[in-house]
Write a protein that binds this DNA or RNA. Structure first.
Length: 572
DNA sequence: GCCGTTTTCGGCCCGACTGTTTTCAGTCG
C-alpha cells in the first residue's frame, strides 16, 4: 500500500505545480514518477533500502531524494510549501470537466474562490464571465461541470461499460456507412475501470457517420461535434468519444486511441530518436507517410513487435519489446476451466446440471464448485452433512458427463483468528480448497496478514480467494501486507485467485504481475452466483494479460486430470 | 526534473475542438 501513498503525494505535487504555472516538463517528471511508482511490482520502500531508487526510469537524484523524504516523514516539504501557496482544495476543481490548471489559477487569484459552492455562486452572479479569457459560454460550462461533478460516480467497472460499448458498435455497424469500427481506449486495454468509451471508425462518409452517432438513442447530450471527432454523453452518464479516420490511418489511429497516454509518449519519443514523427494519421519521415494502415506496421517501423493492448501502460513493455522478450500472453482460448463457481448448495442460483450446461456452452472442460463453508450463514454456508451429499452428486455427474467435469471445491472462510471454517478431516475430502476472508475486515494489517499467511501455510489449502478483499467503488482493500502474502504463497507453493467478478478483479493487474515474477501459480475464478456470471471469465483473462500472464502461469489452462493432479500434490 | 551510440545543456508528443478571440490559449485525450 506504501507505493500508492508515495504516488499520491507526487501526483498532487504535480497538479499544484501545474496550477502554479511551473515548468511543464518538471510537472511531467512528477507525473511520470507518480505513475511509475504506482505500477511498481516491488515495494518502493524496499527499493529505497537497497539504494535502487535511481535505477527506476524517470527517477533521478532529486526525485529519489524526495521519495526517501516521503518514506521517512510521510510527506514532502516541496508539497507542504506548495500547499501554503495554493490551497489544495483547488485540486478538486481540476476534476470539474472543462476546468484546467490555467482557469483554476485565474479564478483563485482574481476572486480567492476556494470552494465549489463559492465557484457556483460566482457563476450564477456572472462574475466568472468577466474574467479575461472567460465568457458566458465558459460560465455555463463550469456550472454544467459542477452538476456532473456532483452526480459523478467516478470511474466505472469495465464489466459495466463494456456491454454498452459493444451495443454502440453493433448499432453503428447497422446504421452508419462504416468500413472499420473498433473499441479503443482503456476498454481495449482491459483496464479494470474506465472513464469513457472510445470508438474508432473508418468511413468514406465522415459527416453522415457523425450525424448518426449524435442521433443514437443512447445519447443524452452532445458535448462536441466536429468533422472527425464527436463527443457525447450517454444516458448512463458516461462520456463517449468517436473518431473518424481514413483507412490508410487505421492502424496509427487505433494505436493512438488505445493509449495509454504514457505508452504513446514513449512510442513517440522512440520515433523522434529515429527521425520519425507519429501522430494518429501515421508514421512520417518528413512529409512521407511510411506506415499507418495496421498497428503491426506502426510498431514494425520503430523496430518493435506488436505489443498487445493490455501491456501498453509504460510498465516496461517497450524495453522488453525492444529486446524481443515480450511475454506470450495467455489467450481466452487457452482457458479450460473456471476455478470458483457457487451453486444452489450455498448462495448460488444454479444447479450443478445448469452449471455443466453453461460450461459446455463456454467451451470449458471443468468447473470448480466452491460453495461457502458452514459458518458463513448469511451466504448459505454448507453444513458438513450437506457437503457429503454434494460430493456424492458431483461424482455421479462426473461419471455421466463426458465434456465437462466438476471439481469438488469449497470457499472456506478464514476465521478471525486465522483458523479455517471446516475441520481438517472435512478439508481432506475436498479437492479444491480456496480460503478467503469474509468477516473481520476492520482488523489491523498485522492480524489480516497473519490470517492469510496462516491459511497459506495450512497443508489442506490450495488457494486464496479474492486476496485483497476490495470491491470496486464500494470497499477499499482490507489492510494487508501483500509482500508477505506473496512470499507465503511462493514458499508453500499455493495459488492466488484472480477473482473475475466484475466488481472485484482481485488480484489486480499489478499483483498479478508480481506473482508471475515470483512464479506463484494463479487461478481465475468468476465467483459466479448465477450462470450468466460465468461470462466474467473474459474479464479475468483481461486482468491476467494485463499482469503479463503466460499460459503456464494459470491453473485454468490445465486439463481436468492435470488440475486434480496439482490439487493432490498440494495437499500434503 | 530527467536524460544523452548526436548532447552534461537544451531539448522534452501531438492534434481536435471550443470559446473567446481577430490569431490563439486552454482543455482534453
Amino acid at each position: 500500500m506504501k507505493n500508492r501513498e508515495v504516488a499520491d503525494i507526487l501526483r498532487k505535487t504535480a497538479q499544484l505545480l501545474d496550477i502554479k504555472g511551473d515548468n511543464p516538463y518538471r510537472i511531467r517528471a512528477y507525473e511520470r514518477a507518480s505513475q511509475t511508482i504506482e505500477s511498481l511490482t516491488k515495494d518502493v520502500e524496499e527499493l529505497a533500502r537497497e539504494g535502487k531508487l535511481e535505477t527506476i526510469p524517470g527517477i533521478g537524484a532529486d526525485l529519489a531524494n524526495k521519495i526517501r523524504e516521503i518514506l521517512k516523514t510521510g510527506t514532502l516539504s516541496t508539497f507542504e510549501e506548495l500547499k501554503k501557496e495554493i490551497p489544495p482544495v483547488l485540486l478538486t476543481f481540476l476534476e470539474i470537466p472543462g476546468l484546467g490548471p490555467k482557469k483554476v489559477k485565474v479564478i483563485y487569484e482574481k476572486y480567492g474562490i476556494t470552494s465549489i459552492e463559492d465557484l457556483e455562486k460566482a457563476c450564477l452572479q456572472h462574475k466568472i464571465a468577466k474574467l479575461p479569457g472567460f465568457g458566458f459560454k465558459t460560465e455555463e460550462n463550469i456550472l454544467k461541470g459542477i452538476r456532473l461533478f456532483r452526480e459523478r460516480t467516478g470511474r466505472r467497472p469495465l464489466g459495466e461499460v463494456l456491454p454498452l460499448a459493444e451495443e454502440v458498435v453493433f448499432l453503428l455497424r447497422n446504421r452508419a456507412p462504416v468500413i472499420d469500427i473498433a473499441i479503443a481506449g482503456s476498454i481495449r486495454r482491459q483496464k479494470e475501470t474506465v472513464k469513457d468509451i472510445d470508438i474508432l471508425i473508418t468511413t468514406q462518409q465522415a459527416e453522415t457517420t457523425m450525424k448518426v452517432v449524435a442521433e443514437l438513442p443512447l445519447v443524452e447530450e452532445i458535448i462536441a461535434l466536429g468533422d472527425t471527432k464527436t463527443s457525447v454523453r450517454l444516458r448512463s452518464g458516461i462520456q463517449m468519444d468517436v473518431r473518424v479516420v481514413e483507412p490508410e490511418a487505421w492502424g496509427a489511429a487505433l494505436a493512438y486511441f488505445t493509449g495509454s497516454k504514457a505508452h504513446n509518449i514513449r512510442i513517440r519519443e522512440l520515433a523522434l530518436e529515429r527521425g520519425l514523427k507519429i501522430n494518429e494519421y501515421g508514421v512520417f519521415r518528413g512529409e512521407e507517410r511510411i506506415a499507418g494502415r495496421t498497428e503491426e506496421e506502426v510498431y514494425a517501423v520503430l523496430g518493435l513487435p506488436f505489443i498487445p493492448p493490455e501491456l501498453r501502460e509504460d510498465r516496461g513493455e517497450i524495453e522488453v519489446a525492444l529486446q524481443g522478450k515480450l511475454p506470450q500472453l495467455v489467450n481466452y482460448e487457452d482457458i479450460l476451466g473456471d476455478g470458483h463457481v457457487h451453486s444452489k448448495y450455498s448462495d448460488g442460483s444454479a444447479s450443478l446440471e445448469e452449471i455443466i450446461l453453461k460450461a459446455e456452452a463456454l467451451g470449458l472442460s471443468w468447473v470448480a464448485i466452491c460453495d461457502h463453508s458452514q459458518g458463513l450463514k448469511i451466504a448459505g454456508g454448507v453444513p458438513v452433512e450437506e457437503l457429503w451429499k454434494k460430493k456424492k452428486r458431483i461424482e455421479e455427474l462426473n461419471n455421466r458427463s463426458q465434456k465437462v467435469k466438476l471439481i469438488m471445491g469449497a470457499e472456506v472462510d478464514i476465521l478471525s483468528d486465522g483458523t479455517l471454517d471446516y475441520p481438517d478431516e472435512v478439508l481432506k475430502e475436498i479437492d479444491f480448497v480456496i480460503a478467503g476472508i469474509h468477516t473481520g475486515f476492520q482488523q489491523d494489517e498485522r492480524q489480516i496478514t497473519f490470517r492469510l499467511v496462516s491459511a497459506l501455510k495450512h497443508p489442506l489449502v490450495h488457494a486464496i480467494a479474492h486476496p485483497t478483499g476490495r470491491v470496486l467503488g464500494e470497499r477499499e482493500p482490507y489492510a494487508v501486507n501483500m509482500e508477505e502474502v506473496l512470499e507465503a504463497a511462493k514458499t508453500y507453493g499455493k495459488a492466488l485467485e484472480i477473482n473475475a467478478y466484475y466488481k472485484r478483479l482481485d488480484l489486480n493487474d499489478i499483483y498479478v504481475k508480481a506473482s508471475v515474477e515470483k512464479g506463484i501459480p494463479l487461478i481465475i475464478g468468476t465467483d459466479a452466483h448465477h450462470v450468466d456470471q460465468m461470462d466474467f471469465l473474459k474479464l479475468g483473462v483481461g486482468v491476467a494479460r494485463r499482469g503479463w500472464c503466460e499460459k503456464k502461469d494459470l491453473l485454468n489452462t490445465l486439463s481436468y486430470e492435470k488440475v486434480i493432479e496439482w490439487s493432490k500434490k498440494h495437499k500434503s
